[in-house]
Design a protein around this nucleic acid. Structure first.
Lengths: 247, 247
DNA sequence: TGTCCCAATTGATCTGGGTCAAGGTTATTC
DNA sequence: GAATAACCTTGACCCAGATCAATTGGGACA
């Protein structure tokens, strides 16, 4: 039982179940069991991966690309409830119906497992259940952190919170650690950001402009963001500590 | 392996680990193992059970009373992120620090387990891990459902959503099932409701008055609510289906 | 090189819910 | 049963963010 290194043994392939997603150890027994129940699927940008209420026949993780979880009311109001980046897990072992829409924001490759055999594997393999429990607890924390953002933060603080989350998960760090400067491409349209933050896209646009005018962020084009001072951004977000949506 | 009935065998005592909270079956082996690691604690209304950031030395479930999970910003803005009713589980196996404050709203009795032994028990006992995973997935769904409430619903819809959740979890049903009339005592002050809904207490008060004037609800005193028509309330909440915070 | 299209910006105005302030209701205590 | 203290309600006013409406920018394609 050795913890997994960055470079994956070729025997493991690039299946996420052997990376962060599900297990953190690396003996090869299960690989065989997985043959035939594991497969890859690709989705185009904009495509719905799972409809809320559908029976889900698979679980899996995101290999590349970005997907979002959204809830919708009949009148069309929508709220994004999660952001899926590579290595994030999708699915609800033990459940049949999906609770929300999963939509590909960019082109997405997923590594999927047929649900029934995966559940059986999980039953036989305690560390998978434990790993899933840890991941689910992380998501629960993230969701609750986000409830504070949605319920109590101002528009400016909401934008700063979102940027700081994306920066932490996504960014190439250009300087010393958590407080230096960071650069990344926004993976979301203004409208998607609005759906995430419980705002309108106009308000998102205005607040981004304001943050740029105040030099909290720099913009190159519409999507490429650089954050000269993470500490400053996190102050704007109202985060006391190092917060942690999506860890 | 028999599913648990309402009346608990006396050998089981009233420990929640044998009720809904953790396991859904009832063989007696583990009971012995639990001796010495299980204990009860009581908290007075208003008392903080766990401070955010504290090391948690126990996990457990609520036996009686009501507690809330809250997040707070330095400037005092607070957001409730969960409501704990009897049988709900508290704690994060595998984690040390608490992520939010847990506060007793009424007097609360908790059935606690020392964390380390509980975790060891969980490692040895797959069905406990599976049960906890299911419960955590339920909480995650509930949290995400609540994100829609916080991000996209109007004040009136928010109040209706909260009332319908409490009615579903808490109420004595007076008529036929989910659509009949229900009666219950509000377990929360107006201020706590406001913290739950991302509103101010004045707005909560006004919207409750409005719902009463429109006969969506009836009030006796300040806390005793009866809902003549659940279907009507759920329409007001904007819930298409039977929604499900806290299941 | 233009034109089509979609994302984004910016402006003007409106409004739901926040803020501030003044009572009213119960419950508790002595 | 009067005094005190929570808790709740209601009113008047205000403002952050929504809504409605142009306009701009930038990439793909012919």
């Amino acid at each position: 039982m050795n913890t997994h290194a960055q470079n994956v043994p070729s025997a493991c392939g690039d299946c996420p179940i052997r990376h962060r997603a599900v297990c953190s150890h690396c003996d090869h027994d299960e690989l065989l069991e997985l043959e035939g129940i594991k497969f890859y699927r690709t989705f185009e940008a904009g495509q719905t991966i799972i409809w809320s209420g559908d029976m889900m026949s698979f679980v899996g993780s995101v290999v590349s690309g970005i997907a979002t979880l959204t809830q919708t009311m009949e009148d069309g109001r929508t709220q994004m409830v999660g952001l899926l980046l590579p290595s994030d897990f999708v699915g609800r072992p033990g459940r049949d119906g999906a609770a929300y829409n999963v939509v590909a924001t960019t082109d997405v490759v997923m590594c999927c497992f047929r649900k029934k055999p995966f559940e059986e594997l999980m039953m036989r393999t305690p560390h998978i259940a434990h790993r899933l429990l840890q991941m689910t607890l992380d998501e629960l924390d993230a969701a609750r952190e986000w409830m504070l953002v949605l319920g109590r933060k101002t528009a400016r603080e909401k934008i700063a919170s979102l940027l700081s989350i994306i920066a932490r998960r996504d960014a190439s760090v250009s300087a010393k650690g958590a407080t230096g400067s960071k650069t990344f491409d926004l993976p979301l349209t203004r409208e998607a950001m609005a759906d995430y933050l419980g705002l309108t896209l106009e308000t998102v646009s205005r607040q981004i402009s304001a943050l740029r005018k105040d030099s909290v962020i720099q913009l190159e084009g519409k999507r490429h963001v650089t954050i000269p001072d993470m500490r400053r951004l996190m102050d704007e977000a109202g985060d006391d500590s190092d917060g942690g949506f999506l860890n």
